[in-house]
């Protein structure tokens, strides 16, 4: 009698623990924002060893705050157009607002003739500018930066 009473409670807690185990094993797979792709990540890490090359682009302000995009060498298009890499839902951004692209080992930001301009730190981007790690790029209400 006492045994079954305790036994049932133990089973109930085992269920809770089993559920939490699934949650734990699933923590990274479910995040969606950072899909771990083993092969790709390893290559990127190898390339980045030694020098502090930017490896991801992070949105720090605006509606998309927290969004990360892995940098894989291809240019990043930013704007309201559906086919942009980072699609902004922002009245102050142009359809094709700015591009961040790799030249040699450095990333450069250039403005694509936007209405309200692109700013790197405080400076308005008129010609392609080199983007140092961690300096904010402001586009409309959105601020992004490169991180290693």
């Amino acid at each position: 009698m006492q045994l079954t009473r305790a036994g049932f409670l133990v089973l109930l807690w085992l269920f809770v623990l089993a559920a939490l185990r699934v949650v734990r094993s699933d923590l990274y797979a479910a995040s969606g924002l950072r899909v771990s792709v083993p092969g790709f990540r390893r290559n990127a890490e190898k390339a980045a060893k030694g020098n502090k090359a930017p490896r991801q682009l992070v949105v720090t302000h605006g509606a998309l705050t927290g969004t990360r995009i892995s940098l894989d060498g291809r240019p990043i298009l930013i704007g309201r157009a559906d086919d942009s890499t980072l699609v902004l839902d922002d009245d102050f951004a142009s359809t094709r607002h700015a591009r961040i692209s790799l030249r040699g080992t450095d990333w450069y930001v250039e403005d694509l003739g936007s209405t309200n301009g692109t700013y790197l730190d405080r400076a308005k981007v008129t010609a392609p500018l080199r983007v140092p790690l961690g300096s904010p790029i402001r586009i409309g209400k959105t601020v992004i930066e490169l991180r290693s």
């Binding site: 998309l64 942009s84 890499t85 980072l86 902004l88």
Partner: peptide
């Protein structure tokens, strides 16, 4: 629908063949 959607194609298009686990067995 005016949703700020799918800003992440760059990060994911690098893994066309890779599918996340469905975990239906679990």
């Amino acid at each position: 629908v005016p949703t700020g959607e799918a800003p992440l194609s760059a990060a994911t298009s690098t893994s066309p063949g890779l599918r996340p686990p469905t975990r239906r067995g679990t």
